[in-house]
Design a protein around this nucleic acid. Structure first.
Lengths: 222, 222
DNA sequence: AATATTTTTTAGGTTTGCCTAAATTTAAAC
DNA sequence: GTTTAAATTTAGGCAAACCTAAAAAATATT
């Protein structure tokens, strides 16, 4: 079955909303897609006719098994393009999303699988979100601020929320960069400062304030 | 001004038709776009209102200066993606066009300029057609069968029309590949066979039949 | 439980990009 | 120079994807 760009956007949005709730409401989806509730109802009828949606009027909707598979395919395309834009063309994280939003609608299985191969089968996009593989499987990770990382848990730096000159200078000094693998060795109760072990074998101490602005991810079961 | 994918396809098609004729007719365009003449008229009204077209009802149309600039931008996008698909993802020439047809409509100046840079500012796409640069300038080349290449004219192999095992074997034996730079040293009148000089310094003789299946290009003034 | 409020759906309208069929204009043929 | 044929445009319709306003259903309030 074939889906228009618009239908694809609906499926993707529902998928994301379902990460938090079992059943998605008309208003929630309208809000996310910046559309009016009436438009949502229109589309829900169409999508449930196509069998990708469980829909009971007035009681919300959720993706069918088929719908989930399709949504994962769209997310795969989106995140692979994000990775390409960031890694190969030098876009920064903020610019990447809007462009990928368009590119994800180019539908060619071969294109995406070749792109995946060209990129070296990346498992996570530049935001640290997992990229589904060609069978729709995703690696799960927990993403949190470094300030909340459990001690002795190995994690990878995926983002810094503050991009000021001053912070980047400090990060450089501490040898912390995107992709750095590290763990918390000690948490000092007095001021919540942290002692880090940065792979392969560097020890650094950072303030709570800095830790709060560094985001890390680590793999979890499943 | 902004153009929909459909409008872009019309502009591109008119541009291509104008390579052969000054004024494009409704029927010619309808034929090329596989649409009905009435649809063409509809769109011509829209496009001439947007100022990209000279249009006199019943007498055909042609691109305005502005229209040409936009068409070149679309062709630039198309051919850069073709180059990417072929060079980076390993697509073959036949598959490249259809996918690029979709990708060309992702509009982001930055995306295209970064892609251009990433690809090393290529001047010709995998079909040997010129890629307009970011200012819309194109290098011109003549594309012909090797059988018709004027003697002593340096040219580059851009395509082989027959992809059979047998022919590829022969090409390999003669050290002729896509991108080979060569010139005709002698044409034997008896059987139209050719003696080639292949850069940097190889001499090969090939039959007329083979020459007819090899296509080459060479730069011409402007 | 009855009423008020919020959420959702229905009904009907708009724009884009296509279509068919009929009318009009231009070009060709006699 | 009529008449015929071909090309083009106009008129009116259709589907997709949105909208507004009104109606209907579910939820909250008292």
């Amino acid at each position: 079955m074939n889906f228009s760009p618009s239908e694809e956007n609906y499926l993707k949005a529902i998928f994301h909303l379902q990460l938090d709730v079992d059943t998605v409401t008309t208003t929630a989806l309208a809000h996310r897609l910046e559309a009016k509730p009436a438009s949502i109802t229109d589309m829900m009828k169409k999508l449930s006719n196509k069998g990708v949606l469980h829909y009971k009027p007035y009681y919300g909707f959720s993706l069918s098994q088929e719908g989930k598979k399709i949504a994962l395919g769209i997310i795969r395309r989106h995140r692979l393009w994000e990775y390409f834009l960031s890694e190969k063309l030098g876009f920064n994280w903020k610019e990447v999303h809007a462009v990928a939003e368009e590119m994800e609608h180019v539908r060619s299985k071969k294109l995406i699988d070749k792109l995946d191969e060209f990129l070296g089968f990346p498992q996570f996009d530049p935001h640290g979100d997992p990229i589904p593989d060609s069978k729709g499987r995703v690696k799960m990770r927990t993403k949190i601020s470094l300030a909340h990382l459990p001690p002795h848990q190995l994690a990878t730096v995926i983002r810094v929320s503050n991009q000021s000159e001053e912070m980047l200078e400090l990060l450089q000094h501490k040898h912390i960069a995107i992709g750095s693998v590290l763990e918390v060795q000690k948490l000092f109760a007095f001021d919540q400062s942290l002692q880090l072990k940065i792979r392969p074998q560097r020890i650094e101490t950072i303030s709570e304030q800095l830790a709060k602005n560094i985001f890390v991810a680590y793999e979890t079961g499943k």
